[in-house]
Design a protein around this nucleic acid. Structure first.
Lengths: 348, 348
DNA sequence: GAGGAAAATGTAACTAGTTTCAGTAACTGG
DNA sequence: CCAGTTACTGAAACTAGTTACATTTTCCTC
């Protein structure tokens, strides 16, 4: 096992001091002749400077930390791509951790990011990590909370989130326009953004004189729970005497599962039941599934930018949802915008 | 901006030396009383040890580096989840970089990983990075090359790859069993694994007396090129007098695009043309698309394990592909295995 | 209560760099 | 030709920890 060359080895090889080597590497005043000798030594020794040591002196690493709940969700995937794109443009690497749900170890992951003295931290965790994030922010590590609505960003933390209530309203509007009146909702539960979407949906539906009964909303924490949840939804509506003509899913994470549960029951979409969900994904166009999108890639970019630019005051960004109407809710009586292809936001 | 507490602050606050604090933190011989005072100081000062400094002393960081070509491909996504799972189990974080294709900056990314003194590096890059990887391996950083077949793993590097030729053969076999005889191939081009898959397919097809003409293979480097590629494929076969009855895609990355190109031409799957592609994905079941899978999640786990366990000799793992037959190739004349649901490999 | 071993703690050296400060050499102007 | 800059360069201090070694303490035994 070959020992790695250190700056000292380079200095010795070039016949100069380590200070001079450091100056050559980082751009200080050095004679051309000296610089030449140093570069020769660097390449002949295959010297690769140690970023850890650099970081300890600078007080922080050059990496951007990301703690995400679920990598496989289309939203988070695009978010990461956005984060990565601006990180790369700033020659930062991304330090990544997936909490997997139901995770109480998100606290441990945020702590690890803190220990690694990340340049900034982008997080989609719950409130449990707030106190540490706040302390990190106070000691100069910009922290961005993504995709959290109520109760709003804790003071000192940046926040980027979707106008979740508007997303719910958009859903209600589209469903109403497509002539649907008995809506069932599958939501992943307790997170503020989920609650806000459902609340927005209910409010808008009520305003349209299409009230959403309490038991027309079911919670499915994971994909495993979805089939049961959908079954209950259908049964309850039937018992109530108003069979469902629309099913809404408030999280992109469960789209596949809800769709599968519907298909498994031989429900025809959109003839029997309209289907509307969150977050666009590559196959949505092929399947004709209408969705409400959030600009995930842009949100990721913005998050990274906040880390890189470290504004002095905490900034809150609220982005607006968009309806991508395809065919899963049936014919749109009004003339609304319509999209036929998946449009990846990865513009570069 | 609050200055972070250092081990020195903790030591002063507890009235001990930094050595003692270090021992309390890392488990050395200390009186219970002393340990108590130190812990009290730690929590009252919110002390969070600096992992960078730790790393420089240990000679390397505790993070696992990953340089991946395309995060959005279903294969790489599961790969990362596997990597992350065992990283988390070893309290390592994952340092991630996406090269995006056609990228010559993969060299720069690998270099950055090297500078960060990652505990180990998992990579899906091309040959351009081999010399550095080899040097890293020599100086004690385990490097794992994933998803590369011919010309085989460079000496000293671990390698985990699919038996790509077998994947091609599996495709040929399934197509033949479904009674298809005029196959068109969309491949992403020059990478060894792509070539091996196409070669395996051609060989097996030839053995079955169904030779694959040179011009029945088109290259589409990105999703943008797919539509043109599919068009050419169809046209050439038509000119040849043997219209296509099967289209194969040798990379999961292009599945959506190929499917869309076919659909856009009103091709009925499987009635007009059978469709067979690589890598399973959540929506495949809903769409009835048959695929050849590789155990991506397990490959990721294995890669991480190699990093953590650092075996003294380079190990090469060759995994076998599996056919998941659904309906996109039509009725299977023989009685083969059949799968109806997407089975995520994320067991844990 | 002294002696010796074992346990706890501190001192100082070390990791791989960066940066300050001081010294030397070269260059400019009078 | 000498003073005054200015341009390079090196010694040493510094970053935030860990660890080897030396030095106390403490504890037990006789």
């Amino acid at each position: 096992m070959v020992r790695r060359a250190t700056i000292g080895d380079v200095a010795a090889h070039a016949g100069v001091s380590t200070a001079t080597v450091s100056r050559v590497l980082n751009g200080g005043a050095v004679t051309e002749a000296t610089a030449g000798r140093v570069w020769a030594a660097v390449s002949s020794l295959d010297y690769t400077p140690n970023a850890l040591t650099r970081g300890i002196f600078a007080g922080r690493a050059s990496t951007i930390g990301v703690v995400i709940r679920d990598l496989s969700s289309p939203f988070y995937l695009d978010l990461i791509r956005g984060i990565d794109a601006v990180a790369a443009a700033n020659s930062s690497l991304v330090m990544f951790a997936n909490t997997f749900r139901p995770s109480d170890h998100e606290i441990a992951l945020v702590r690890m990011m803190d220990e690694h003295r990340v340049r900034g931290l982008i997080v989609t965790t719950g409130e449990s990590t707030d106190s540490r994030l706040r302390r990190m922010a106070e000691s100069g590590t910009p922290c961005v909370v993504v995709a959290r609505t109520v109760p709003g960003p804790p003071p000192g933390l940046h926040s980027i989130s979707l106008n979740d209530a508007a997303a719910g309203r958009l859903m209600a509007g589209h469903l109403a326009e497509c002539g649907r009146s008995s809506v069932g909702v599958v939501t992943s539960g307790g997170r503020p953004s989920q609650i806000a979407r459902t609340a927005g949906l209910r409010q808008a539906l009520t305003d349209l004189d299409l009230p959403l009964p309490e038991d027309a909303v079911t919670i499915a924490a994971t994909e495993k729970d979805v089939d049961r949840a959908v079954g209950e939804l259908l049964a309850r509506a039937h018992d109530r005497g108003r069979p469902l003509d629309a099913v809404v899913c408030t999280t992109g994470r469960l789209t596949v599962a809800v769709h599968a549960a519907l298909t498994a029951r031989s429900v025809a979409i959109p003839d029997d039941i309209a289907f509307l969900t969150m977050d666009d994904f590559p196959w949505a166009a092929a399947l004709g599934i209408s969705v409400i999108t959030q600009p995930a890639y842009q949100m990721g970019r913005r998050a990274s930018e906040l880390v890189v630019e470290r504004p002095s005051r905490a900034v809150s960004v609220l982005v607006e949802p968009t309806l991508v109407a395809r065919s899963s809710c049936g014919e749109n009586s009004a003339g609304k915008d319509r999209a036929d292809a998946f449009r990846p936001e990865v513009s570069s």
